[in-house]
């Protein structure tokens, strides 16, 4: 599957701009995850594998109900199970892990292949395998450790937020399969308001630190997560204040311009040297024609 034709592209990797004309505006979409009502049934994992036609992956016992240690190139949706000491007891936490669809995607910034990673106008971050060169540079660009390089296909793969379903007006497969309603899909603003409502209820229920996880360091995400323990996202395996990695910003915003200046200085410097100082020739030469100094 290449880039979805129906959506305009807001941003494209290794390109100055996408195809967005700004003539029409699409609302930013989001997937809403309420970890407080997730029961860890993993129906979303199965639905994801089914819809995206991904091959069966070997499960791995990690000491919890978790299917495998982390996401794979052919496993884009994983419920992470964690146990944390909390108020003399145990908080049993489940979180659906997948691509967060950052508004400011580090993977897209790090990608050197034009158009291999695109961000549609509705906020979905997608990979175009046809343009992916399998360099894996997106992976150190991601603050959530999501992109996976597949040695079998030599391509990067991750959750597409079921953009092929969204394009035709369907919700993502994981959302469709969720039996508790802890997964929702729709307009991001509406879901943020819904999340706020839910956070208020959680606070009333005794979770004073409940919050919606929509990290501003990456411009917000199109996967928003309601956390009972909003002050400790790391309990859920989420970084506290994720940003595009410093190395990627340093590389693209500082090193690149400096590199171009250095390259230009080298080229124009030699040209300038040749025009002002000129060649160094033997004085008493009989083999060269010029005859000057």
């Amino acid at each position: 599957m290449g880039a979805i034709q129906g959506f305009e592209i807001r941003r494209s990797s290794a390109s100055l701009r996408g195809s967005a004309t700004q003539l029409r505006t699409l609302p930013v979409v989001a997937k809403y995850i309420d970890t407080s009502t997730c029961i860890g049934c993993k129906a979303c994992e199965v639905a994801c594998q089914e819809w995206n036609d991904l091959p069966v992956s070997q499960t791995e016992q990690v000491g919890t109900y978790q299917t495998m240690p982390s996401l794979q190139a052919s496993y884009w949706n994983l419920i992470q199970f964690r146990e944390v000491d909390y108020q003399g007891g145990v908080a049993w936490l489940m979180r659906k892990d997948q691509c967060m669809h950052c508004a400011d995607p580090g993977c897209l910034a790090a990608c050197p292949a034009p158009g291999a990673i695109v961000q549609y106008q509705n906020g979905i971050v997608d990979v175009d395998p046809e343009k992916c060169i399998g360099c894996g540079l997106c992976e150190p660009g991601c603050p959530f450790d999501v992109p996976r390089y597949s040695e079998r296909t030599n391509k990067m793969a991750k959750c597409t937020l079921c953009v092929d379903r969204v394009e035709v007006g369907l919700e993502p497969a994981c959302v469709k399969a969720c039996p508790t309603g802890c997964l929702q899909f729709g307009d991001k603003d509406t879901l943020l308001a819904y999340g706020k409502h839910r956070v208020t209820a959680l606070k009333e229920g005794g979770f004073a630190e409940a919050a919606v996880y929509d990290p501003p360091g990456v411009g917000g995400t199109s996967v928003i997560t309601v956390l009972r323990h909003g002050d400790h996202p790391e309990w859920y395996g989420l970084p506290k204040d994720p940003t595009v990695p410093v190395a990627v910003s340093l590389w693209k915003r500082i090193l690149h311009p400096l590199g171009f200046i250095a390259m230009g200085a080298a080229l124009f410097g030699t040209l300038g040297h040749f025009m002002t100082v000129g060649p160094k020739k033997p004085k008493d030469t009989s083999t060269t024609s010029g005859g000057e100094v």
Partner: peptide
């Protein structure tokens, strides 16, 4: 990931040195 981030920077600095 962290090692590869460092490598990106080192590789790029090396390239610029080579070019000049």
């Amino acid at each position: 990931s962290t090692l590869r981030q460092v490598c990106i920077i080192v590789h790029d600095v090396g390239f610029i040195m080579w070019f000049v």
